[in-house]
Amino acid sequence: MHTPLLRKLVLLVLGMFAFAFALVPLYDVFCDITGLNGKVELTAAEASEEQDLARLVDVSFTTHTQGQAPFKVKAATYQVTVTPGTLTEVNFTAENLSGEARIMQAIPSVSPGMAAKYLHKLACFCFDQQSMQARQKMSFTLRFYVDTELPNDIAELTLAYTLYDITDRNAAAYDALLNPAKHSRHSAAGKDYAQSIQAAVYQQIRGISHG
């Protein structure tokens, strides 16, 4: 007597549980379309076919490190003034401040958030994980342009990079999973394997959110 209704309600519960996870790609798609959260594409864009030489836009660059990430990244110029559609290059110098090899991931964010989808990057060190040897210095070139469609009320925007040390991200998780009693973050055994699953998981996640 109760089974048909019960079945529907259980389906509803399972559906809502799935919906919670569906919110993750939905959120990304929504933000992609509307450009709401200042998230920038992590894939290379095509060069612009149009230019708007009558307009000037200030673009500033900032970087900051997340937690204890041992990196220093600095733009050669703090601010550039560009015309929409014109390809611009800015040099960045990066340094691994620690005495061991680390992997850096830079995550860009644009402020004001609404401007995010009008900033296109053709080349960026944030597109890839950067492996850096101990104390290694590297230089990167950012090639970008501002879309001619940029709303008129936006005259200046900031491109902010957050620098993450992702060397241990999945190694730590893997270690915790296998050796819950041990709190060492650097287990020699399994580290290679951990790094390989790290790379795989990482690629997958990036594929999901920015595919």
Partner: peptide
């Protein structure tokens, strides 16, 4: 909504212990 809460705590669990990045910008989350 209770299943959505269950989903949220599950994401916290996997982010914290299993290396996913639902809420971690370093891995593409937010």
């Amino acid at each position: 909504v209770m299943p959505v809460l269950a989903g949220a705590v599950t994401m916290v669990l996997t982010d914290k212990y299993f290396g996913t990045s639902f809420f971690d910008a370093a891995g593409g989350g937010d």
